[in-house]
């Protein structure tokens, strides 16, 4: 198991390198000059090239990449062009907020999805199954930003129960574990949970339905095992695959919540990303994308290792 872990960790290096190169180039090939956003319209050519030199944009690409990476491993991701604040601080603050939102959504979505999926897989092809399937298709197909807006209209505008903007009172982005802040989390987390409920429910339904028809389950019954114990076995067999689906869903929740964060003004990475794009804030954009991508890589790694740990059929060498 230890050698497997080491091997997987070493394999992450080339992936991380590739991710960093792509992040770097992605921004280079994007149209437009980032400096035009912050320079006065009537800036002279000398002023422009001085600015360019100050941000290192005058050097050849490989050199720019080397400098960028060199700073990166020291935790320095440069300064935001728009605000002048360190990118690292901005990104990590935002990622923390996104993580909070993503994990809350997952905490809502995964148990519900698993429960519904198991129910549908067990009562296959009768009304329970059809109802769950309908719910999960609706969950996956309803645009969640639209759902978010509907929820805001109902719970914030009409009923006035829950706030609709920001992560705390007065638009504060400093999270605290108290009701004043947590009220702000409820609507975005519920909205974000809807898609993964559908996806997890469908996955678990297929898994449980498939495992229940296998002979070894019949063999468990024929051994004299009670229904509850047999279902426990089915659940453990479904766990490995369900886990990997949920791990990837968590990754999607973290990176894919741009629209939700925008709808709810949630100060997370998606919100930061959209700001960075609109302001042509190149260092901030690079930093945000890189951190999100590396998070995805890490998530994949964790899922693989967890899967190998619980499923003996997966080679661990």
């Amino acid at each position: 198991m230890l050698t497997y872990l080491l091997r997987r960790l070493i394999l992450v290096l080339p992936v991380a390198f590739g991710v960093s190169v792509i992040c770097f180039l992605l921004v280079q090939i994007a149209p437009g000059d980032p400096l035009t956003a912050i320079m006065p319209v009537d800036a002279t050519a000398e002023e422009q090239s001085a600015m360019r030199a100050a941000y290192g944009l005058d050097k050849p690409l490989p050199v720019q990449y080397a400098i960028w990476i060199g700073n990166l491993v020291q935790g320095d991701m440069g300064k935001s062009i728009a605000t002048g604040r360190p990118v690292a601080a901005e990104v990590f603050g935002a990622v923390q907020n996104s993580l909070l939102l993503a994990v809350s959504a997952a905490v809502i979505a995964f148990p519900i999805g698993i429960f519904l999926g198991f129910l549908a897989g067990y009562f296959r092809d009768i009304w329970i199954d059809r109802a769950v399937t309908a719910v999960s298709i609706a969950g996956v197909s309803v645009p969640n930003y639209w759902l978010g807006i509907v929820l805001v209209i109902i719970f914030s505008v009409n009923l006035g129960w829950l706030p609709s903007m920001g992560a705390g009172p007065g638009g504060s982005s400093e999270w605290q574990w108290n009701w004043l802040h947590m009220r702000h989390l409820i609507l975005p987390a519920v909205t974000l949970a809807v898609v993964p409920i559908g996806i997890v429910a469908r996955t678990v339904r297929a898994l449980a339905g498939d495992i229940l028809t296998q002979d070894f389950v019949q063999a468990l019954y024929a051994k004299g095992m009670s229904r509850a114990d047999v279902l426990r076995h089915v659940a453990r067999n479904a766990a490995a695959t369900a886990l990997s689906v949920m791990g990837l869903q968590l990754g999607y929740l973290l990176g894919g919540s741009i629209l939700i964060e925008t709808v709810f003004n949630w100060p997370g990475s998606g919100f930061l990303l959209s700001n960075a794009i609109f302001q042509r804030d190149l260092p901030l954009l690079q930093g945000t994308i890189l951190v999100l991508a590396l998070f995805f890589v890490a998530m994949n790694l964790i899922v693989d290792v967890a899967q190998a740990a619980i499923d003996p059929r997966i080679q661990r060498t």
Binding site: Q214, F216, Q218, A219, A222, G224, N237, P312
Partner: peptide, 19 residues
């Protein structure tokens, strides 16, 4: 009953608990 009567299935690949 299951103490007295036991069953062996056709497919030894599918009938054993994989984990």
């Amino acid at each position: 009953f299951y103490k007295k009567v036991q069953m062996v299935f056709q497919d030894p690949y599918g009938s054993l608990h994989p984990r």
